[in-house]
Computed example of a mutant assay.
Amino acid sequence: MPETDQTHASALTVPRGLFVYLLLYGGMTVLAGVLAFKQVRLWPSDLAVESGIFAFLILVVISSTIAQLYGRAIANRLVWWGFVPLLVASVLMALVLRLPPSVEMAQFRADDLVAFERVHSMLWRIWMAGPAAYIVSLLLNVWIFSRLRGANDGGGTISLMIRGAVASALSQALDSVIFITLAFYGEFDITDLLIGQVIAKVALSFVLVPFLITGGVWLARKLDRA
């Protein structure tokens, strides 16, 4: 390989762990918006949560993991570039909804067609609310996570777990307020959904995120060494 090609290849090398998380991150940004349309019951109460919470917690873990291993600047860039798959997905959805259905589907699967168009044509508020909540909460998560590390923090496991949980809980509580208000206000009484969402995200942030983020950091380091 010529020297110039080697230089270019070296400059474009991305750590394997970072590359894998970049792929996963893009998928989760789109999936979070799709899942958000369904609300599920928060057992054992009757409080409701929108299902996008599960994909969004993965986004939190990935952004914190990248901030931990590769720096806050890269994590922030990842958050901003997460708009790209969201934009492409929304454009494709608008295109598909405008295209006429096939003759076979209109004739033999009319119920499926009606259900598809009914659900996805109502997603416009979610597609609008998602990016607003996404950018505020994820940037806040990265900022809190990085600030809590401090100059003398060596990045130990306990510190990692605590910072991940606190940053996730605070940022996801704000995300719930922004997203649910913009997406569902006026459609129905959002009180139970909003309360349930905040409780669920805060609870899951303290129960799951500490272990998910330590696992995420471990996996990234393992992939980087492979």
Rank of each mutant, 00 (worst) to 15 (best):
M1D: 00
P2K: 13
P2N: 15
Q6M: 09
L18G: 01
L18W: 03
Y21G: 04
A32F: 08
G33C: 10
V34Q: 10
V34H: 04
V34N: 07
L35M: 15
F37T: 10
S45H: 08
D46Q: 12
V49C: 03
E50K: 03
G52Y: 13
F54N: 05
F54V: 12
F54D: 06
V61P: 04
A67G: 02
Q68C: 06
G71T: 02
R72K: 15
A73N: 07
I74W: 03
I74F: 06
R77M: 06
L78H: 02
W81V: 13
P85A: 02
L86G: 15
S90P: 02
M93Y: 12
L95V: 14
L99K: 06
M105R: 09
A115M: 09
E117H: 14
E117C: 00
M122C: 05
R125W: 08
R125N: 11
I126V: 15
M128N: 06
A132N: 11
A133Q: 10
L139G: 08
L140E: 07
F145N: 04
L148A: 09
R149N: 05
A151E: 09
G154Y: 08
G156L: 01
G156D: 15
I158T: 14
I162F: 02
R163H: 03
S168M: 06
S171H: 01
S171Q: 05
S171D: 05
L174S: 01
D175V: 04
F179D: 13
I180R: 08
F184Y: 15
E187A: 14
F188C: 07
T191I: 00
I195C: 07
Q197V: 04
V198Q: 01
A200I: 01
L204I: 14
L204S: 11
S205Q: 02
S205V: 04
V209G: 03
W218R: 09
L219D: 04
A220N: 01
